[in-house]
């Protein structure tokens, strides 16, 4: 591609010249996704059907997609949240516990589940932000605690939502304009997150914190408050993913989301976010989650046995990262 000369002399503010490296960095994730879709379409007859596409989206929504948004916020501040899979399980169990066992109405029950997720995130966040504990260790501790709590409240047994939680299961199987409700919810969350990151003070500050926390602090910004908040967001979104999991299966289970944190981190990183903080975007994160979703789907359609699938997922993550790094290397 040739670097276009930019005209626009009439504009008050001069346009920045086209930067090839920046373009590649921005769109390489999308390129990988496109290649994957083309391969999948050519390889199988069933991939590019409406039914299958919606299926992929629904799986992404219930799996890594929503949690990836929270993880992106955390990673932007140069942190990591390993507790999302466990909080998802806790969310799923509490769905059953509050609504079925405590017989709380759904209008109080669901906010209560979200609040519980927020509380888990807040504990991690407060320790990370105000006591400067490493997020890796603190969220690892929360990972154990939340999983433990999910076992405590479910007593190790799945809680059937049944009649009391009928509204939840209806949401899980419901559709609007033929698109599953969880997919709408995911889309809504991504849009809100995108607007927050790109157009608000909050988004700008958390990105800047990841890039140079000290400079932000010395600009008079209350850095700990912002750092703590991203873990709360991550906790709420993980609990949301737990509710969706419960809504799809009709049970609250402590076995949901085992190892999910790794897929979620993979989605964010495949989406080009830097674990060193400050760099990453919502759209690329969505594409990162979709890449993982399409891969799983493709292997299912192609009849790859379940055990082998894990191996191939690992390979894909490695290849995607390799492409990313070689692309960003061209930049320098």
């Amino acid at each position: 591609m040739s670097s276009k000369a930019t005209g626009g002399t009439s504009e008050v503010i001069e346009k920045r010249p086209f930067d090839k490296a920046e373009f590649i960095e921005k769109y390489s994730t999308f390129g990988i996704f496109l290649i994957l879709v083309v391969v999948a379409t050519l390889w199988t007859d069933t991939f590019l059907t409406e039914r299958n596409m919606l299926n992929v989206l629904r799986q992404v929504a219930a799996g890594t997609g929503i949690m990836a948004v929270g993880m992106l916020f955390v990673i932007l501040t140069r942190g990591i949240d390993l507790s999302v899979g466990s909080i998802q399980a806790l969310g799923s169990v509490l769905c059953g516990y509050y609504i079925v066992q405590l017989d709380i109405s759904i209008w109080f029950g669901i906010p209560l589940v979200l609040l519980s997720g927020a509380a888990c995130g807040a504990i991690t966040g407060l320790f990370v932000a105000y006591l400067s504990l490493p997020s890796f260790v603190m969220s690892l501790a929360m990972m154990a605690m939340a999983r433990g709590l999910s076992l405590v409240y479910s007593q190790g047994q799945p809680i059937v939502l049944g009649k009391a939680g009928a509204a939840i299961t209806e949401f899980g199987s419901g559709r609007f304009l033929n698109v599953p409700m969880p997919v709408w919810l995911m889309a809504f969350i991504f849009i809100v997150a995108g607007i927050t990151l790109n157009f608000t003070k909050y988004g700008r500050i958390i990105k800047a914190i990841g890039s140079n926390e000290e400079a932000v602090r010395l600009s008079g910004i209350n850095v700990p408050r912002y750092v703590a908040s991203v873990y709360v967001i991550s906790g709420v979104l993980a609990a949301t993913a737990g509710i969706i999991a419960a809504s799809r299966t009709g049970i609250g289970s402590s076995q949901v989301g085992v190892g999910a944190e790794l897929n979620v981190i993979a989605a964010v990183v495949i989406g080009g976010a830097s674990l060193m903080g400050g760099r990453g975007g919502v759209i690329n994160t969505l594409i990162g989650a979709l890449i993982l979703g399409v891969m799983t789907n493709l292997m299912n359609l192609a009849g790859v046995p379940g055990y082998h699938q894990q191996v191939w997922m690992g390979v894909i993550i490695a290849v995607a990262m390799l492409l990313h790094f070689s692309v960003t290397k061209i930049k320098n």
Partner: peptide
């Protein structure tokens, strides 16, 4: 560079 500016921004 360390404290005054967020240099990549």
């Amino acid at each position: 560079k360390g404290e005054g500016v967020v240099i990549d921004f």
